[in-house]
């Protein structure tokens, strides 16, 4: 394991290497991909990327939480959460790549 952290910059660099676009345009394309995925999710859509995984939005009901430090009860309002379910291909490649 190399334990590095990649960012948008590394993704746009990969796009830049793959297709003959400028670095600037590559960065903008990475941004649009993330923006379109985010917009669809905010609209409540499921985003299903074959051989990558599925992002879906789930509704969580209101519940009573507790401040673990003070023990005080605090109401937690209903909210929407995003879950990601990796594809089998992703799971297999991640498991194989990190095997010792």
């Amino acid at each position: 394991m190399s334990d590095k952290t990649l960012t948008r910059m590394d993704l746009s660099e990969a796009v830049f290497r793959e297709v003959g676009l400028s670095r600037n345009e590559s960065a903008q394309l990475v941004e649009s991909v993330l923006a379109h995925m985010s917009d669809a999710l905010v609209d409540g859509e499921t985003v299903k990327i074959s051989s990558f995984g599925t992002f879906s939005v789930r509704d969580k009901a209101a519940r009573v939480g507790r401040n673990p430090k003070t023990g005080e009860e605090v109401p937690i309002s209903p909210r929407r959460v995003l879950t990601f379910r990796p594809s089998h291909l992703m799971k297999d490649r991640v498991a194989a790549g990190n095997k010792r």
Binding site: M1, S2, D3, K4, T5, L6, T7, R8, D10, L11, A14, V15, E18, V19, V30, V33, L34, I49, S51, F52, L89, M90, R93, V94, A96, G97, N98
Partner: peptide, 19 residues
Amino acid sequence: TIFEEVIEAMARGDRVELR
């Protein structure tokens, strides 16, 4: 390429942080 890059990073044990 974008999705492939994310999978390759994780297969190496790397993190991909998209603020």
